[in-house]
């Protein structure tokens, strides 16, 4: 599996690379421009139809969120001649302690993304610029851990944390953050590996130790990767459902758990229009971040696709 890494990783991370190495690759932008065949009418039709199908769930969510429950229960006919109302959004933020859950989510995602970005940068630096016995097998292990089924390991992790009394606290996220994320470590490693040796040499001659070289020379160069790493881990933590559902109590849980379980009538049935409004509010930050930082998401998805 590791054979592909060598072949493909450089292509994948090309976007993340410092300019010095860019010229060594086939240039990306022109290659892309003359690559695609021009589109026929039939292709346009196919793309537009697929895009419409892909958008239906989101459009439907928006429609449901501005419908009254009566309109919603009339089904599609009710939703298609809608008289928009914002009352669902009002209900969504008042039925549950919306501010508190949002703060919890923000706090958790910030803790997680800050710590994991810092740790991943340090470990990525170690794998890229330092040498030690057993480094190669360790790196293979790092890549292999990305294959470990995470959901399956989370359940026994829960038992361990429960025995240590960490359930109901944010400590698990601190620990996970401090341990770094293999995928982000890989991202940093790729970036740091491409920085020319001369920069490092100059710092060594100036008498810098490795920690100072890392902080003063490498970290400032890595700003784009740091941002990518922060954004990605923030969105992951924001979107995570299982870990907070297992490890937190209802009053310190995150918005994802509250959104999934907060909007029920007394008999425990979901209130669809309010759920829709809640869900829309909940994904709004993610969609906004996605639209602004689309390239980062796509670029990182690409390098995740060739990591093995």
């Amino acid at each position: 599996m590791t054979t592909t890494v060598k072949d493909q990783a450089p292509a994948a991370i090309a976007a993340q690379k410092p300019k010095t190495t860019a010229r060594k690759r086939r240039r990306k932008a022109p290659a892309e421009a003359d690559h695609g065949r021009p589109a026929s009418f039939r292709l346009y039709l196919a793309v537009i139809i697929s895009a419409t199908v892909f958008l239906i769930p989101i459009v439907w969510l928006v429609l449901a969120s501005i419908a009254t429950p009566a309109q919603f229960s009339q089904g599609a006919e009710g939703l298609l001649n809608i008289s928009p109302t914002l009352s669902n959004f009002y209900e969504a933020v008042t039925r549950i302690d919306y501010g508190k859950f949002t703060l919890n989510s923000l706090l958790l995602a910030t803790i997680m993304s800050t710590l994991t970005t810092a740790t991943s940068a340090i470990v990525g630096f170690a794998f890229a610029r330092l040498r030690g016995k057993g480094q190669k097998p360790l790196f293979t292990l790092l890549l292999a851990t990305m294959m470990i089924p995470h959901i399956a390991t989370l359940i026994p992790t829960y038992i361990l944390f429960a025995r240590m009394g960490l359930v109901g606290t944010y400590w698990p996220w601190v620990l996970w953050g401090l341990a770094g994320t293999p995928y982000l470590i890989f991202l940093f490693k790729q970036f740091f590996s491409a920085i020319p040796l001369e920069l490092e040499d100059a710092a060594i001659i100036d008498g810098c130790g490795w920690w100072r070289i890392f902080v003063r020379v490498f970290l400032p160069l890595a700003r784009p990767v740091i941002l990518t790493s922060f954004i990605l881990s923030f969105v992951w933590a924001w979107a995570d459902y299982l870990a907070p559902a297992l490890l937190l109590n209802y009053d310190n849980t995150t918005l994802s758990v509250a959104t999934a379980s907060g909007y029920l009538d007394p008999r425990g049935n979901g209130l669809p229009t309010i759920q829709a409004a809640g869900a829309l509010l909940y994904i709004l930050p993610v969609v906004a971040i996605f639209l602004v930082a689309q390239k980062r998401f796509m670029g990182s998805a690409v390098s995740s696709g060739v990591k093995g």
Binding site: F54, P57, T259
Partner: peptide
């Protein structure tokens, strides 16, 4: 972006969307 967006949407919201449809 349209094709990629669904994979960024948190699972909680995805489930709500599909329950509505």
């Amino acid at each position: 972006a349209i094709f990629f967006l669904p994979s960024v949407v948190p699972v909680v919201a995805t489930a709500i969307m599909f329950r509505l449809i």
